[in-house]
Nucleic acid binder design. Structure first.
Length: 532
DNA sequence: ATAGGGTTAG
C-alpha cells in the first residue's frame, strides 16, 4: 500500500519509533492494596426484594400471594447457595447493595457462619459491578479476598477488566499496580493483560509509559493485532498519522495481519485529522488488498467525517453503499445524518430519515433524540426540544444527562434562566441527576445574564455536591461582583469556594487587588477629608 | 469489557 507523503516538524512523529526502539521496561514497585473496612449493614430489608424478583423471572405458577410466601420461606429456611448468590448479584442493580450482599450472603442465620464457598463467577460479577460504579476501595477489598482463595485461580480477564476500570477512571498508577500483582493471584500474565494496560495508559494519555510497556511486552507473549491497534489509536490521537502508518507497516513486518479493527482505527484517525480522501481510499483498499469488508462502525466514522467537511451528499451516498453491501444500518448512522441535516439547515429532510428508520425497523435511541434536541436548540426552538424530551420519555427511551444539558444550555441562551434552573432541579425526579456539566452550564448562563444572586446560590449548591465550576467562570463572577462593589455576594462566593477548595491563586489575586484598591481609595478619601 | 463508530460540553 502506498504511504502518504510524510509531514515533518511534529513532535509526536517520533511516537512509533520511540515505542519500538526504547530500551528496558521495569516493573513498578509493588504497593499494597488499600483496604476499607467491610460494611456491616443489616441486609434483610433488601433481601426479600431480590428474591422476589428472582422468582418472578422463574415463571412461577403460583399467585402473587403464594409467590411472596415463597420468598419469605426461602429467606428464613434455605441459606443462599454460592450458585444462587451469583444470580442474585446479577439481578442487583445497586452496586452498594450488591457489595453488602456479597460480603454477607446469609445474614439471618444465628449459628456461627461457616465459611461461604464463593464461586469464581460471583467474584467476577461483583468486581465488574464495583469497577463500573468506580467503587474502587470496595473492589480492592474483594480482590484481596479473592487472593486468599485456595480453591481456584482467577482468570486473567478479571484483571483485564480491573485494569481498564482504572484506565477509564484516569488512574494509571493503579492500573500498573494491578498488572504487577496478577502473579500473586496464581494467574499468568499474557499479552491480554498487557494490552489492557496499554489501553488504560492510552486513556490516561501516558504515551511514554505505553512505550515502556510495549518494549517489555515480550515477557508476556508476542504482541498481537490488538496490541498494534492500541498503538495505532494512540498515534492517531496524537495527530501523528505517519506514526500510525509506521505501526501499520511494522505489524505486518512482524507477521501480524491487520483486522477490521485495525482499518477502523486507521480510518478513524484519518477522518479525525480531516484526511477524508485517504480514509475513503483505505476503505477501498481494505477490500481490494486485504479482502476485509468495512462494517457499520467504519461507515459511521466516514459518514461523520464527510458531514464534518460539509460533504453531506457524499455521506448519503455511503449510506446507500451500506444497503448495497448489505451492512445493516443502525441508529448511529442515522443519528450522525440527522445531526448533520440540522447543522446544514436541511431539517425538513429529518422526517424522511425518521420514516426510513421506521421502515428499516431501526428505533431512534437516546443519541438520535439528543441529535434532534440539539438541532432544535440551535434554532432556538426550545418548545420542540422540550416536546422531544417528553416524547422520548413517553416512548420508553431514557433521556440522559446530555439530553438535559442541551436543553438547559438552550434555555440559558434564550435568557430563560428561571426555566433552566427549574429543569435542572427537576432532573433527579426524572431519573437523571445533574452532573458537573449541568451545573457549569447553568452557572455560566446565570453569570452571563447577570443573575449574580442566583449564580451565587447555584455555586454554593454545586460545591456542596462536590462539583467545581471552571476557573474562568468563577473569575468572571468575582470580577462582576467587584465591579458592582457587591461585598455581600462576594463574601458568600468566597465562603463557598473556600469550602470546596475552589480558590485558585488567580481568584485570590483578583479579590486582593480589589480589596487593596478599595482600601486605597478609602485611605485617600480619608486623607482628602483631613486635608480639606 | 484486551482493541474500533454515532449525540453534548468546556
Amino acid at each position: 500500500m502506498r504511504k502518504p507523503p510524510k509531514t515533518i516538524g511534529r513532535e509526536e512523529t517520533s511516537f512509533a519509533l520511540s515505542l519500538i526502539v526504547s530500551f528496558g521496561y521495569s516493573n513498578g514497585d509493588s504497593v499494597p492494596f488499600q483496604l476499607s473496612q467491610p460494611l456491616t449493614v443489616p441486609l434483610r430489608y433488601f433481601y426479600p426484594n431480590s428474591l422476589c424478583s428472582q422468582s418472578m423471572n422463574d415463571k412461577s405458577r403460583h399467585s402473587t400471594g403464594q409467590r411472596k410466601t415463597n420468598c419469605i420461606q426461602m429467606k428464613t429456611h434455605k441459606p443462599i447457595s454460592p450458585f444462587r448468590l451469583s444470580s442474585l448479584l446479577r439481578l442487583q442493580k445497586d452496586p452498594k447493595l450488591a457489595f453488602q450482599l456479597f460480603l454477607n450472603p446469609n445474614p439471618s442465620s444465628s449459628k456461627p457462619p461457616k465459611p461461604f464457598r464463593y464461586s469464581l463467577l460471583s467474584y467476577d460479577l461483583i468486581i465488574s459491578k464495583l469497577g463500573r460504579a468506580k467503587m474502587f476501595d470496595e473492589m480492592e477489598e474483594i480482590l484481596h479476598q479473592l487472593k486468599q482463595e485456595t480453591r481456584f485461580a482467577p482468570h486473567e480477564v478479571i484483571f483485564c477488566n480491573v485494569i481498564s476500570f482504572y484506565g477509564r477512571a484516569r488512574l494509571p498508577d493503579r492500573a500498573f499496580q494491578v498488572f504487577d500483582k496478577i502473579p500473586s493471584f496464581r494467574c499468568k500474565r499474557t499479552v491480554k493483560s498487557a494490552n489492557s494496560l496499554l489501553d488504560a495508559l492510552l486513556k490516561c494519555r501516558e504515551f511514554e509509559k505505553m512505550a515502556e510497556v510495549f518494549v517489555g511486552i515480550g515477557n508476556y507473549g508476542s504482541p498481537d493485532a490488538c496490541t498494534f491497534n492500541i498503538l495505532i489509536h494512540a498515534a492517531c490521537l496524537c495527530g501523528d498519522l505517519d506514526a500510525a502508518w509506521d505501526v501499520f507497516d511494522e505489524m505486518q513486518k512482524r507477521g501480524v495481519k491487520p483486522n477490521v479493527v485495525t482499518f477502523g482505527t486507521m480510518i478513524y484517525g484519518l477522518s479525525l485529522n480531516f484526511k477524508l480522501k485517504e480514509a475513503l481510499r483505505l476503505k477501498e483498499d481494505m477490500v481490494r488488498v486485504y479482502m476485509i469488508s468495512p462494517n457499520a462502525s467504519i461507515y459511521a466514522t466516514l459518514i461523520k467525517g464527510l458531514c464534518g467537511v460539509g460533504e453531506l451528499n457524499w455521506a448519503f451516498k455511503l449510506k446507500e453503499e451500506m444497503v448495497t453491501n448489505k451492512v445493516k444500518l443502525d441508529s448511529a448512522i442515522y443519528s450522525t445524518l440527522i445531526s448533520a441535516l440540522f447543522k446544514h439547515g436541511r431539517k425538513e429532510e429529518v422526517s424522511d430519515i425518521l420514516g426510513e428508520m421506521e421502515e428499516n425497523g431501526c428505533k431512534p435511541d437516546t443519541v438520535t433524540y439528543n441529535a434532534m434536541i440539539n438541532g432544535h436548540c440551535q434554532e432556538n426552538d426550545l418548545e420542540s426540544a422540550q416536546r422531544l424530551l417528553d416524547e422520548m420519555m413517553a416512548k420508553g427511551c431514557k433521556p440522559d444527562v446530555i439530553s438535559f444539558n442541551t436543553i438547559i444550555r438552550g434555555l440559558c441562551k434564550e435568557g430563560k434562566w428561571d426555566k433552566a434552573k427549574d429543569l435542572l432541579e427537576d432532573m433527579p425526579r426524572r431519573g437523571c441527576p445533574p452532573d458537573v456539566v449541568s451545573y457549569r452550564i447553568l452557572f455560566d448562563g446565570l453569570c452571563e445574564m447577570l443573575q449574580l444572586k442566583e449564580a451565587t446560590s447555584i455555586l454554593d449548591e454545586m460545591i456542596f455536591k462536590g462539583h467545581v465550576p471552571r476557573t474562568e467562570s468563577i473569575n468572571k463572577l468575582v470580577d462582576r461582583l467587584c465591579q458592582g462593589c457587591n461585598m455581600e455576594l462576594l463574601w458568600m462566593v468566597l465562603k463557598s469556594l473556600g469550602r470546596g477548595n475552589g480558590m485558585t491563586v488567580d481568584t485570590w489575586a483578583r479579590v486582593v487587588a480589589f480589596v487593596c484598591k478599595e482600601k486605597l481609595s478609602e485611605a485617600s478619601n480619608l486623607i482628602d477629608s483631613l486635608i480639606s
